[in-house]
Amino acid sequence: MLETLTDNWDLFVEAFRTTVLLLIVSGAISLVAGTLLGAMRVSPVPALRTAGTAYVTLLRNTPLTFVFFFVAFGFPRLDIRFSYFAFAVVALSAYTSAFVCEAVRSGINTVHVGQAEAARAIGMTFGQTLTQVVLPQALRAAVPPVMSVIIALAKNTTIASGFGVMEAGAIGATLNERGYPAFDAMIWVAVGFVIVVLPLSLTQRRLERAVVRSR
């Protein structure tokens, strides 16, 4: 059991590094894209709202595995060729930004109506109201739900293992080929994920309580 880990320490480190890299890159892209989408969905321009809503509805009702399928197998048929890692980033970001958008929007909805009304009353434009009054408060309220989305993203990176990316989810199959018990390998992968995800979950819960208390 233990030698499955110790013999292949390099593989574990390499794979988990890829997982964390996937998490950071697609996390950063999703945060930016999701916030933009959230702003689109509350904007005064109907076309922007419709476009944002359509994107979010479509992506939220699609399995992530299918998004991976479309990107990793479909894009090459369209003569779009990147590395498997880049494909995984595209799939994860496209999917996660829809969920970040919803988290941000729920944050905007928690900001008291009076805040926006007061901002308007002193003559601020939509852009000013949003960036100087509503978003700073909304983002604070949105931190716990966004954290949940990021935790889900951390777990979702394992799907990339089915689409050519050598990350933590693929350790079992790789070690199986090397003649090590795949079950033991996956136990260690599970331990690794608990180590990565549990601190995130605990922080998230503390932040959640802090936001509730501050109100």
Binding site: G162, V189, F193, V194, S201
Partner: peptide, 14 residues
Amino acid sequence: RALPVVVMIFLIYY
């Protein structure tokens, strides 16, 4: 809740 479903599927399968 902390484990990815993919890891659980592989664990049960293997």
